[in-house]
Design a binder for these strands. Structure first.
Lengths: 336, 336
DNA sequence: TTGTATGCGTTATCAC
DNA sequence: GTGATAACGCATACAA
């Protein structure tokens, strides 16, 4: 796979490499004739600049490193689409890495991104990440970083997330307004940001409507956990009249558990999930959803990052950007 | 984001860059003391080799370019996981690109991969790709390429696919054996390889059992098409007693259409889809599936490609590797 | 308007 | 064992 280089063009046209280089970049100091000559030759022999050499020379790669826990997850793949779209518009390419929810993989992956000289990093933290000191040191070294979705308060970088609090609040409020009183919350690992924000929204809504917060109605699960059936069964012993599930997988598992027990939705128990699965509404027409603005999160995060990269304004402190979720009520859950 | 370089180490330790380079690569010609000195310093100041410089020098990037139509598709994201796993084991990294089912995007993306000096390419063709001449010329230039899933007969490169013929045959056979006679086939664009292979399997099974092939029972759809409802309705006018759907989306749409019309599955109509959606079985316990070995396809394809890259044996002609699918019958579709 | 020289970080080929 | 030097492909400061 050897391609033609500037040197080849220079030799063929009996010019110097610098002239060719300038002609190719359409520099004003090159005569029109020479430009034409070079450009024609380049096109004819399909010259393509070696981006590796360019990166080395210019000390920038025009690559954004994206680290997500999993690609095989509709939310993240949509976020990536958003990132890609925004990056494409501004001449950047996206290098995708997966941490597989493992802190070690996240580190390996982070180092790769740095070794490959990514111009900036877009990160959604793995669920097993508690130590962000490497990220902190990177940030101190002025590597542009933007966190999205799963963020960390210990890092002083721009963050783009769904309005998790608002989404959980709205969902809970909806359940309360339609007559529910014992709203269970089944959620993901307790130490990641989105869990806490959603829990806070859930709790705030309960308190707002004078319903006490009952920790017996809240259960945490692991991402790795394959079977959440037992946890749901355990919750069911608390006789809830509604579920707020913090992920696609949990919502769907709830659905399965309720069906298995012939518990009617929404007649007996209401179900709202934080779900972005495209077929969710087909699963059961009564599965309501807090839909996350995945594309928008990706777009915003990429824009933030590229702004950071290009301005190099380390003063630019945008802080947290929170994008509204959308509550899609698929069937009235009003108690009759 | 400036990291320490070999030069920095050399200066600090009053050595030459070549000595440092050799010490870092643990060359036998460097004295143990010097090695220790260099290695200690490197570790202390967290030296990391610049992969861009390395790539330029060695004319290889240890990067595999992967081009898929869409990431937000369970099949492809699983394939990517398989690729990543295999690549990781052999010291390669994966650069993921999406063609978004567009030929133009595929070209842009292809050029990016080349410009970034990917050591080899793993490609699943976009559905709008009919012209493979660029790929042909790349292949002639000895760029290692392996196709997977959506392949092309015009390209003389190794291919890794599901056994689409076998999968469709087995599914159709199952339907026939359980008493179905009018088996409709709703499928994806006609000109991509998997469509033709699946159609051939479907047809072969019909003929094997003495059922004629009726083209009125076959319908093609586009990937871009948002609403396939009309096509399904059209098929329903042919009074089929079974559906073989060629994708997740089509299977799910069939399901929705049947439910809407209160057509019982499998009592009235049987449904088998080429589906890998994790929640498919929850959608309807009667939705049977031809499951594709996504992980395995990814692994095999990556291994093939890395073999190609490393042996540089352009004689190595493995041809087509076809990995069995799995027919998962979720409810007996026997006619009573 | 064009050419010469230098450097990005690394490795390889020579010397010594 | 170690060091000087060149080279990968490109871009630019400086000459001419």
């Amino acid at each position: 796979m050897d391609s033609i280089t500037i040197k080849d063009i220079a030799r063929a046209l009996d010019l110097s490499t610098s002239t060719v280089s300038r002609a190719l970049r359409d520099s004003y100091e090159i005569s029109p004739e020479t430009k034409r000559l070079v450009l024609d030759y380049a096109k004819q022999f399909n010259y393509r600049p070696n981006q590796i050499a360019r990166s080395l020379k210019e000390n920038r790669s025009r690559i954004i490193g994206v680290i997500v826990p999993q690609i095989a997850n509709n939310f993240f793949s949509e976020v990536i689409n958003g990132i890609e779209a925004a990056a494409y518009l501004r001449g950047y390419y996206v290098f995708i890495f997966q941490s597989h929810e493992s802190y070690e993989r996240e580190l390996v992956t982070l180092r790769q991104a740095i070794d490959r000289k990514a111009d900036g990093l877009l990160i959604s933290l793995s669920s097993s990440t508690s130590d962000v000191s490497l990220l902190q040191s990177l940030q101190e070294k002025k590597l542009p970083i933007v966190l999205f979705d799963r963020v960390s308060a210990e890092l002083d970088v721009p963050c783009v997330t769904s309005d998790n609090f608002g989404g959980a609040f709205a969902a809970t409020e909806h359940l309360i307004e339609t007559g529910r009183r014992r709203i269970a919350h089944i959620t993901i690992p307790s130490y990641i940001s989105i869990t806490q924000e959603r829990l806070a929204g859930y709790r705030a809504a309960l308190e707002r409507y004078g319903l006490g917060y009952d920790e017996n109605l809240v259960r945490y699960t692991d991402f790795g956990q394959t079977d959440v059936g037992p946890v749901i069964n355990d919750l069911l012993t608390q006789a809830p009249d509604a579920f707020l599930a913090a992920s696609d997988r949990l919502a769907i598992s709830c659905l399965a558990a309720l069906k298995k027990r012939n518990i009617a939705i929404p007649e007996t128990v209401s179900l709202v999930g934080f779900t972005n699965t495209p077929v969710a509404d087909l699963l059961d027409p009564a599965l309501s959803a807090v839909e996350q603005p995945a594309l928008e999160i990706g777009r915003m995060a990429a824009q933030q990052l590229i702004d950071l990269i290009e301005m190099k304004a380390d003063t630019l402190r945008v802080g947290r950007i929170s994008i509204p979720t959308r509550l899609v009520v698929r069937a009235s859950s009003r108690l009759t």
